[in-house]
Amino acid sequence: MEYILHLLILICFYTLLSQSLNLSAGFTGLISLSHAGFYGIGAYITAILSTHFGFSFWLNLPLAMLISGAIAFVVSLIALRTVEDYFIICTLGIQVILFSLMNNLMNVTRGPLGIPGIPSISFFGMSLDSKISFLTLSLFFVALVWFVLKNISKSGFGKTLTAISEDEIYTQSIGKNVYQSKIISFTTSAILAAIPGALYAHYISYIDPTSFTVNESIFILSIVIIGGLGNLTGSFLAAAFLVLLPEVLRFVGMPDSIAANMRQIIYGVMLVAVMMTDRNGFLELEFQRKKQKMR
């Protein structure tokens, strides 16, 4: 039972991560490979604040979001000078830089040793130690983020973002500030990524840089693409699927060591399949619509 709750909490984390990435990747078309970096910033800020200064979760969370957002803002000013595939390579570079900061700034992050002893969350004096109470808290954040993103996508600003993903030049020609909208979208997505970061740090109570590698970024991006760009429900379903996949593989009798690799192979194949077929490939349909419009 404990283990099932653990899996459900993981699904919550990846739903939060993939839905927040969906704001920039799906709605705005800014496919980014630095999301695990911002997730990591959230986790590290929380870990440092709570172990060094004894801050509570409710103070750590806004600070983590703020710092993650500030870094994302600076990064986006640079990265958004490039477009499409150059943007991906640029964000990949940012991910590598963020990772090496986490891994190498020994006096701040303790490098590969990681930060142990992060206290659990307390809520009005009662400690959320049990998995069930933590799951409730995670579900609350999932619902909150889902609600916020749903509203952003329905708002006028959300429509501008969709317009940018479909035709950037046209959007600019009708007087929308494309550059500014992209910055807001990218920054917001990083701010939201700090939420699962803070939750993760308090939940596991120990963090090290290996949780925030390029591979993690690729994994989060895969969830978004497999679920469908701009599709929040899809992100949730894909997150659940990919988190439960190793369990299913273990259930059919595959050893642990193979299951991890098999999962990566399976979502690698799924990425290729989504890109090669029209079905489920939301990105695909989006671009075809754009092409038809231009003809």
Partner: peptide
């Protein structure tokens, strides 16, 4: 398809 789609497909191939 756009260049972006190839890049994502190639990440998938790399993973495999």
């Amino acid at each position: 398809v756009p260049a972006l789609a190839y890049l994502i497909a190639s990440i998938g191939l790399y993973l495999v």
